[in-house]
Structure formats: structure tokens, C-alpha cells
């Protein structure tokens, strides 16, 4: 579904991604882990054309991702994104945030969208908060609205960029359990950048370890997380599971 082939990306002279080969299959949950600054966000942003890349290819299904082509807008409706800092529209209610894309981008009928958006907000446990503005919601609630907003586009896949990193610890669980629900009940294709190793172990089918611009190790989640082969992976996992 999402495929990287020898993909390279640099900012000016700084080569951030130096030949990425990776794949996320339909219905699969893949976690992307790696040290801060290793290029995890950049990798996600290249999938939906928020960043251009310089070499190799990124494919979504049979479509080549090319940020400079006008078709990039259609690609973005096929792959939704959930951000670390939620990025909800502050001047719109939770319900309006979810309805925005379907009405204005997909041009669906507002009455139908309202019904579907309400159902999605109910699905993420926010039926009480439909009319609330983002500023009056907790971080965990805002991120759940953001997930509903992503789902409202009926995407083929969702990209999550550290969806729980900006949350207070007591709110991490509510967001992860919504994500787990998506994976298990709807077979949603998901690529998740996270430091939540427990989540990766329970929900992900595979884990990619990004280090120094390359996928340094990849494998089935349990195997890679419990018995990492690469020394850098071992090192990294020690640091995130036993913070100093």
C-alpha cells in the first residue's frame, strides 16, 4: 500500500534520509521508531507530499507521490495524517473540524457528513463534546478529534506522528486505545511513529528502526522489540524503556 524504494531526502546539504526501503501493506500496523532527529517525521511527511524528496520513489498503491504535481492533493485525501500537536482548527467546534474535509474537499452533502462525523466522534468517545471548541478540550480529547477528522476522509491509510508525545501521561492511554481499536476492528492501515514500545509490541505487526537516515533494522514487532539484533536498536530500546 505504501512503499519506499531507495528514497532519499535532504534539507540543503543535510542528507536526512539516505536510501529508505520500506513497505506498509494493506491492513497492517507498522511502527516506526528511532532516535530524535533521525528523520521519522520527515519520512511520514514525504508520504503525503508535505515534503518533497530528491531520489528514489515513494508509492501509494500504484501512484507515485510527487509533491510538485497537482495530483498531490488527491493523494492527500487517500492518506490522512495525525500530528503530534493535534493541529485542530481552533475556530471550529469538534464536529466542524471533522466535517471540514468531507464537505469542502470531498464535496459531500452536509447533512450526510454531519451524521457520519457525529458517528465518528461517538466512536472516539466524544459524543458529549461535539459542540466544544478545541481550546476547551484536553490534549487527549483533542487528539481523538484529530483522529476522527482523519477518519472522516475515508483514508486508505493513516499516518501518526508521535500522536501521544504532547500528552500528559494520564491521557496517553485513551488515545492509544482508540488507535488499537482502529487497527483491530477496522483493519486500518497505519504507520505510527511512536516511543510507546508497549503499544508497538501489542498492536504493530512490524517495527522499523530508523537510524542515521537508513532503516537499520526491521522485523515482526515482538521479535524486534524483544530480541533486537542491531546494536543501535538494542541501545535505543534500552534508553526508551529505561529512561535515565
Amino acid at each position: 500500500m505504501i512503499r519506499f524504494e531507495q528514497m532519499r531526502k535532504s534539507f540543503g546539504t543535510h542528507a536526512v534520509l539516505r536510501g529508505i526501503d520500506a513497505e506498509v501493506n494493506r491492513g497492517e500496523v507498522v511502527c516506526l521508531i528511532g532516535p530524535s532527529g533521525s528523520g521519522k517525521s520527515t519520512m511520514l511527511r514525504c508520504i503525503n507530499g508535505l515534503e518533497p524528496y530528491q531520489g528514489g520513489r515513494v508509492m501509494i498503491g500504484d501512484t507515485l507521490v510527487d509533491a510538485s504535481r497537482p495530483t498531490i492533493h488527491d493523494i492527500r485525501t487517500r492518506v490522512s495524517m495525525v500530528f503530534q500537536r493535534f493541529n485542530l482548527f481552533p475556530n471550529r467546534t469538534a464536529l466542524e473540524n471533522v466535517m471540514e474535509g468531507p464537505i469542502y474537499v470531498l464535496k459531500e452533502k452536509p447533512a450526510d457528513v454531519r451524521e457520519r462525523a457525529s458517528a465518528l466522534l461517538r466512536r472516539v468517545g466524544l459524543e458529549e463534546k461535539m459542540q466544544a471548541y478545541p481550546a476547551s478540550l484536553s490534549g487527549g480529547q483533542q487528539q481523538r478529534v484529530a483522529i476522527a477528522r482523519a477518519l472522516a476522509m475515508r483514508p486508505e491509510a493513516i499516518l501518526f506522528d508521535e500522536p501521544t508525545s504532547a500528552l500528559d501521561p494520564e491521557m496517553v492511554g485513551e488515545v492509544l486505545s482508540v488507535m488499537q481499536g482502529l487497527a483491530e476492528e477496522e483493519d486500518m492501515t497505519m504507520l505510527v511513529v511512536t516511543h510507546e514500545i508497549q503499544f508497538a509490541r501489542e498492536v504493530a505487526s512490524r517495527v522499523l528502526f530508523l537510524d542515521d537516515g537508513l532503516i537499520a533494522e526491521e522485523g515482526p514487532a515482538r521479535e524486534l522489540l524483544q530480541h533486537p539484533k542491531n546494536e543501535r536498536t538494542q541501545d535505543f530500546l534500552r534508553r526508551v524503556t529505561h529512561p535515565v
Partner: peptide
Amino acid sequence: DPGQIEAAKSIGMRRGLTMRR
């Protein structure tokens, strides 16, 4: 906030729509 523009882009909004909405 640039994050707003990214959010708009990520739901497929084009430049004009992002500006207006």
C-alpha cells in the same frame, strides 16, 4: 500557526481553500 496549514493540506485542501477556510 504553520501546523494549521499542514492540517489543511493533510485533508487535501488546495491553496485557495486553505486560505479561505
